[in-house]
Amino acid sequence: MEHIALATGFLLILIGLYGALTQRDILRMIVAFTIANTGVNLVLVAVGYIRGRSAPIINDNLPAAEATARMIDPLPQALVLTAIVIGVGITALMLAYAYKLYILRGSLDISKIKELKW
């Protein structure tokens, strides 16, 4: 189970990276990066999972006394929350850049942004 989730995550990362590195259109690149980010988040969450256990919330279903025996690792979930938010932030920033670049250049082709080189 965990291996499947991990493998899916890795696969998403690879697909996302492939898209980001081969697509010319900036917007598509941003989408590809989003896919890769999703893959990473999936990997993060998959690592904490313990088979047969339940979510780390203490209520009638999972009283405090049994928590240690029946809870999955809560830490990766906290990490992934932060990671998602940071990913959103960077995506928004990239979109703003894409917009400005489009306004100034009239094109969304990455290979056209080349004045600064060697």
């Binding site: 313990i50 780390p56 203490i58 928590a67 240690t68 809870m71 999955i72 809560p74």
Partner: peptide, 22 residues
């Protein structure tokens, strides 16, 4: 659970008082 997870599982409810450990 590893050491960190176990600590949270055992103590978070008492120390912090939140039911949602995350």
């Amino acid at each position: 659970l590893n050491q960190t997870g176990r600590y949270y599982a055992e103590n978070a409810a008492d120390e912090v008082g939140a039911a949602n450990i995350v």
